[in-house]
Design a protein around this nucleic acid. Structure first.
Lengths: 191, 191
DNA sequence: CCTACCGATCGGTAGG
DNA sequence: CCTACCGATCGGTAGG
């Protein structure tokens, strides 16, 4: 199957790369236009405003993550398996859409009013879902009992660094990355 | 002892709060001036440019972290104790200077040329120092042998989330936070 | 998809 | 520390 890339998708994809590199506010529509190969005014035939692009990027990422959380929740398996699967899916989305994920992680604060509100609600839902898995895993004895909020954020942050630090040119494969992070999260530094 | 807060320090401190909230590029000098209680033109009697403020903030944070790394390196203790002390100092700096740390973490990319170069060198030195502790701890058998780079970034990210997520109004004390993170890093989720 | 253009706002300076 | 102001650039629109 040949994937059809519309002009809009190509604009969004270029915008995500620029927003990630320079930040949303410091990226101008003229610069984006130049990268895409048209005049700034022409962009508005494909998008309706600068913020609408940001919204599109952030919401796409949010929906991806919520979708994979649903998949994890439907698994018939122990909590260690569920968390391992969660880590796998989270990293897969991150690495396959690194510019989009980066923008959703760092530039969402430039969303306004309704868009901001909706985005924060998605994030809250996601966090609540993951926390729920952790709490159930602690109750079942699969995980050590500790503060669920601290555990949640430490877990999410351990995954989030990948978007910031991971460089493909380093000789670390995705598999090795995943294995190491999973092991770290389950067992820590200890032998 | 009464701490003398100069006008410059008060401007930098307000700038850090704004840069954190809205991002460096989206913060205007007029807005900063208003928060400080003067006209935009008057700011330039205390600072030389917008970027010079950013530089000051980022370098102060970088130097703090490098200083505490030196302290850890001079300890006569096992590697588990060293890492515990490292976690403690890192969190202490973070929580006591949360706006400055946030700016250094997220807004450094707006530094230019020499300033950017110097900042990245400081960060590289810091990371190399921490990685060195991890590697020695793996060699000595205190830590499990795993990829040092992945371990480094997972560790640093586990600490970094505090600046993003930690809210004082949650009923989590600094001591509890520290204890939980230290335990997570050493032992992971497992019982 | 382009040319031409708008009002608004930006960081910063002159001069006092 | 302020008033007055500069050139540059911003996101976006009109009209074709």
């Amino acid at each position: 199957m040949i994937s059809v890339i519309t002009k809009r998708e190509s604009i969004l994809s270029t915008a995500a790369i620029l927003f990630r590199q320079k930040g949303y506010a410091a990226t101008s529509m003229r610069e984006l236009a130049e990268q895409v190969g048209m005049e700034a005014a022409s962009l508005y035939n494909h998008i309706s405003s600068k913020e609408e692009m940001l919204k599109s990027i952030c919401f796409q990422v949010g929906e991806s993550y919520l979708l994979h959380l649903t998949e994890v929740n439907q698994m018939q398996a122990g909590f260690r398996e569920k968390i391992a699967r969660f880590i796998h899916l989270h990293l897969a989305i991150t690495i396959q859409n690194i510019a989009f994920v980066s923008v959703a992680n760092h530039e969402w604060k430039h969303l306004k009013e309704e868009n901001l509100k909706t985005f924060l609600e998605m994030r809250k839902t996601y966090e609540a879902g993951v926390k729920n898995i952790l709490i159930k895993g602690m109750d079942s004895g699969d995980f050590r009992k500790m503060d669920p909020s601290i555990t949640l954020y430490t877990l999410l942050s351990s995954l989030r660094w990948v978007e910031v630090w991971y460089k493909e040119n380093r000789n670390i494969s995705v598999q090795e990355l995943e294995k190491n992070i999973e092991h770290f999260i389950l067992n820590g530094l200890s032998t």
